[in-house]
Amino acid sequence: MLHLIIEMFSYPFMVRALLVGALIALCAAVLGVTLVLKRYSMIGDGLSHVGFGALAIASAMNAAPLAVAIPVVVAAAFFLLRLRETSHVKGDSAIALISTGALAVGVTVVSMTTGMNTDVYNYLFGSILSMSGSDVWITAVVSVVVLALFIFFYHRIFAVTFDESFTRATGIPAGTYNSLIALLTALVIVIGMRMMGSLLISSLVVFPAMTSMRLCRTFRSVMISAAIVSVVCLLLGLVISYLYATPTGASIVLCNMAAFFIYAVIAKIRGLD
């Protein structure tokens, strides 16, 4: 077992996947706490479908996947946020409209150009092998920026999450911070999509937060616990994926499910909930 793990990390692509994956997992977990508490969990899912559409178009045009996907998904995130605030189309149905629409565009583009090849399969279900070249660097830089912004605005993000109208009423630009949350979410979704796949990336956002909220009672402890759970599950998922040749994204989600049940059982035993 041990020598297998040592062997696993002798491959440079595995080390890359681990480092980049850990950064993504951290970002997704801390943002996920805010999104879950703001009842925005499904936005991550919707955005990842938009990301799939963008990636399909990028590969059809032979463009760098992330360079196309990032601006498109960021734009979609702002659009969804605006729609929530103003329109008569309510939150979850708006997300359904946009995500299925984007998926349809993506599938159409794929079938008209390359057909269902391995690339497309990887966009849907993720692959550690897809983490290479410039993508790794973009991912690393973006996730460090996301983490830095999140830490810098941590207290304000708490305030708009806990009570938006109070925050607005006391003279803090809540709208700006909502936009910031949307921007960070879009970035995390796009960079996480290569590894996790567009169908599974939202689990990285939702699971650690939900798991931690079984046990933790303060915002900060939920954050810290979510970050740890997320990184540990990623690590275990990668190992399992390597050992049993299972898809990376799916293995990480399975680990997250296990963590959720463990936390839930502990909560039950301790008499919380």
Binding site: L37, K38, R39, H155, R156, F158, A159, T161, F162, D163, T167, T170, G171, I172, M213, C216, R217, T218, F219, R220, S221, V222
Partner: peptide
């Protein structure tokens, strides 16, 4: 509704009043 199941300590909530 959100606040009814929000994990936050009393100190975290009170301190957030100082942000402005």
């Amino acid at each position: 509704q959100i606040q009814k199941d929000f994990p936050a300590s009393v100190r975290e909530v009170v301190l957030s009043g100082c942000l402005n």
